[in-house]
């Protein structure tokens, strides 16, 4: 009935397809949220237990990049949308975590480049 009020010509297969899509959307949001929590807790555990090393820096930065991509694609809902906005948002997380990792692993280089 609700669909009729919208003036859409919906038959049973279409209604089933829409229902299934929405059901998957909700499950996908839940899955993304759980993955985000797992990455966060993993990073926190790494920070508290592991000795500082290059691997820890790389893993943490990769985790941040992945979290950013998941939020942009699925929670913001930009997956499958026009590329201009989607890629401009993704570029933030494709650029900044690598910059952070390089600056963390090569502080001498950063110091040399920023000393007047």
């Amino acid at each position: 009935m609700a669909y009729d009020r919208l003036g859409l010509d919906l038959n049973l297969p279409t209604i089933i397809r829409i229902t299934v899509t929405l059901m998957f959307n909700r499950k996908r949001l839940m899955l993304v949220w759980l993955i985000l929590l797992i990455i966060t807790l993993g990073n926190a555990l790494l920070a508290e237990s592991a000795e500082p090393s290059s691997w820890v820096v790389l893993i943490v930065c990769a985790g941040a990049a992945l979290k950013g991509k998941l939020v942009i694609d699925w929670l913001m809902g930009l997956a499958g949308t026009e590329r201009a906005v989607h890629w401009s948002m993704l570029s933030y997380f494709y650029l900044l975590p690598p910059i952070i990792a390089i600056a963390w692993l090569f502080p001498d280089l950063v110091e040399r480049l920023t000393t007047l």
């Binding site: 966060t40 790494l46 950013g68 952070i100």
Partner: peptide
């Protein structure tokens, strides 16, 4: 939320 995703490792983790 996106900004915090980078603040968290920068200040607390690394």
């Amino acid at each position: 939320d996106l900004v915090w995703i980078l603040i968290f490792p920068l200040l607390y983790v690394l």
